[in-house]
């Protein structure tokens, strides 16, 4: 699947560029794309390392453990195949919490570690497990309750009430998460 999407982006992009006479822009994109990825990684390196460090303190102090214990009923429902005391549950809990609070890149290290732990439970290493599909679907359904960036842009463009969309935004976020969760649950049962 990932090969297909990536191939579609690259091949489709270059062929359309050739057809529309935009090859100069495609050339620039190839070069600048690699460059901006490395730049992003450098910025990200600092932030991710910082949050991983803080996360480790929370982990050793037993904070993440108690968070995942509190979430046991939800975790049992969403990830029945992951044993109760497994580390994957802790990292998933930490990832959800960070996403929820809008901590952005703080969520990434926990999320990647959750994937690593889920992979340990996986028997077919190249194929996603039901727990992975559920975890990523929820992750990609947007968990962040208040997107502060958007409020800042609204203020910048002279909105009379920048925060008036917060309530609607929260309801919409809940809807996306519920839809994703249900869809993944149904697919898990069917497939």
């Amino acid at each position: 699947m990932l090969d297909a999407i990536w191939g579609f982006f690259i091949i489709g992009g270059i062929l359309t560029g050739a057809a529309l006479g935009r090859m100069d822009m495609v050339t620039a994109a190839v070069i600048s794309g690699g460059k901006s990825a490395v730049e992003l990684a450098i910025t990200m390196g600092g932030v991710v390392a910082m949050w991983s460090g803080v996360l480790k303190i929370a982990e050793k102090g037993g904070m993440i453990d108690s968070l995942s214990v509190k979430l046991t009923p939800a975790m049992d429902f969403l990830f029945p195949s992951v044993p109760r005391n497994h580390k994957a549950r802790q990292y998933i809990a930490a990832n959800f919490a960070a996403n929820f609070l809008g901590l952005g890149w703080a969520a990434t290290p926990a999320g990647l570690m959750a994937m690593k732990e889920l992979q340990k439970l996986n028997k077919e290493k190249e194929c996603a497990t039901g727990a992975m599909c559920m975890f990523l679907t929820i992750n990609m359904s947007s968990l962040q309750l208040v997107t502060v960036n958007i409020l800042a842009y609204r203020t910048e463009f002279g909105s009379q009430a920048p925060a008036e969309i917060v309530g609607v935004g929260i309801v919409a976020t809940l809807i996306t998460t519920l839809v994703g969760m249900l869809a993944a649950k149904i697919m898990d049962k069917v497939g």
Partner: peptide, 8 residues
């Protein structure tokens, strides 16, 4: 290293 993403 997952390649088959199933229904995600």
């Amino acid at each position: 290293g997952i390649r088959k993403t199933r229904y995600t």
